[in-house]
């Protein structure tokens, strides 16, 4: 089966600091991959390389058959197919929830305003926030803001969704509502890469878990394998601290 994402020997340096030291992996259509690892392991950087918010230092990333690390690649076109959800939501504070979701379809996809707003409304309904469409982000709870952010990313009808610790900035009681939205996306067949420490979520939704440490994928496998019988000592040490 054709892979949605192919990563070959990805390296990323910040000055002298080697954050990613040769990552290679494949992600299949409809697959949900959960990336775990200690802070500073490079997992967020890896995710950010997948839509070139961080340009790769070397190596190749191919998404839907297009090399995005090629300097001639049209990065804006590629990003339309790769949705991203951030830890800190990053909603546009000067726009309502509806405007947040409709902006990119209008400006990038060149949809008519009415069409884009209809699309935005249907997405807000899907994340359970139809009644919050006219609210500004500051009036919304963290969980609601993150759901708007997911709707905003979905509005570009991406083929892949990237989640960068989507629940770690949330109060505990709001984690569930955001994870439920992500779970539904998984059920609908969205290909996703999720950096998360929510082990229950990883077990329930993840097809595969990758453990990263010091810029490398140390171990990967099904959630049962990786959480149940980790092989690598570093994986075991990390899991013993968080489980």
């Amino acid at each position: 089966m054709a892979k949605v994402i192919i990563v070959k020997k990805l390296h990323k340096n910040f000055g002298d600091l080697q954050v990613l030291r040769g990552i290679s992996c494949h992600i299949a259509p409809r697959e949900v991959v959960v990336v775990i690892g200690p802070s500073g392991s490079g997992k967020s950087t890896f995710l950010r390389c997948l839509n070139q918010l961080e340009p790769a230092t070397s190596g190749e990333i191919i998404i839907n058959g297009v090399s995005i690390t090629d300097p001639r690649a049209d990065i804006n076109a590629i990003r339309q197919d790769v949705g991203m959800v951030f830890q800190r939501f990053n909603l546009f504070p000067h726009m309502t929830a509806l405007q947040n979701v409709a902006l990119a379809p209008i400006k990038v996809r060149k949809l008519k305003k009415a069409e884009a707003e209809e699309l935005a409304m249907s997405l807000l309904t899907r994340v359970g926030l139809r009644d919050k469409a006219d609210q500004y982000p500051e009036k919304l709870s963290g969980g609601q803001q993150q759901r708007v952010a997911i709707a905003r990313a979905l509005a570009m009808q991406p083929k892949v969704m990237l989640f960068d610790e989507p629940t770690s900035a949330l109060d505990p009681e709001m984690v569930g509502e955001v994870l439920d939205v992500i779970k539904n996306l998984a059920l609908e067949g969205m290909t996703m890469v999720v950096v998360s420490h929510e082990m229950g979520f990883a077990r329930e939704v993840g097809d595969r878990v990758m453990f990263m440490d010091e810029g490398l994928i140390v171990e990967e496998g099904s959630p049962e394998q990786l959480f149940g019988s980790p092989q690598n000592p570093r994986t075991r040490a990390f899991l013993s601290k968080i489980l």
């Binding site: 839509n51 918010l53 804006n76 076109a77 990003r79 339309q80 790769v82 949705g83 991203m84 951030f86 990053n90 909603l91 546009f92 902006l103 990119a104 400006k107 990038v108 952010a149 905003r152 990313a153 509005a155 570009m156």
Partner: peptide, 10 residues
């Protein structure tokens, strides 16, 4: 804010 906008393809 810039990252969110760019990630949407702007």
């Amino acid at each position: 804010q810039m990252e969110a906008a760019r990630s949407l393809g702007m």
